[in-house]
């Protein structure tokens, strides 16, 4: 397949072209061609670094996931701000929480860890050595099991649908 050889990663080509256009911020034919050239060259050069890249099965679920995460970020920001402002340090109960993972692809686990860190109130600390559990630090909670259930039901379940 000649086409496959020129575009080993069509999505990356598309993203790079878009990012280039967004960076120069003016859409002209010259910029489009230049961006497209970057979009062809970079995937060819970086191909050795993604031998078993993940497949995204439902592209529209990605948008749904992003919107849910954005909303959660806003809500959690307010919650954490209230904790910082109005709770005495002695009353803040931080917990390390172990969340067993069903995700197996490294890309999916990376997205989940990033999501956990970006939603204020939880930070992903480390993975188990075999990558099948994630250690989460929670700023304040009375219900560690609830936090674990939320991560599993709200984020992991959706990522599983997207990546597996």
């Amino acid at each position: 397949m000649a086409l496959k050889r020129i575009f080993p990663h069509p999505l990356l080509t598309l993203v790079l072209t878009f990012v280039w256009l967004a960076l120069v911020s003016t859409v002209t034919l010259g910029n489009l061609i230049l961006g497209f050239a970057v979009g062809i060259v970079v995937p060819l050069l970086t191909a050795p670094y993604w031998p078993d890249r993940a497949k995204i099965h439902y592209p529209f679920r990605v948008i749904e996931y992003a919107l849910i995460v954005l909303w959660d970020i806003v809500v959690a920001n307010v919650e954490v701000a209230l904790i910082i402002l109005f709770k005495r340090n002695a009353n803040i109960r931080s917990h390390f929480i172990c969340v067993p993972l069903e995700l197996t692809s490294p890309e999916a686990i990376t997205v989940l860890a990033g999501t956990i860190t970006m939603t204020p109130g939880t930070v992903s600390a480390t993975l188990a050595a075999d990558g099948q559990a994630i250690l989460v630090h929670c700023l304040h909670t009375d219900d560690p099991d609830g936090v674990r259930a939320q991560i599993k039901n709200r984020y992991e379940r959706r990522l599983k649908e997207i990546f597996q």
Partner: peptide
Amino acid sequence: SEREYGWA
């Protein structure tokens, strides 16, 4: 970690 392997 509730598994054979500990934290990384």
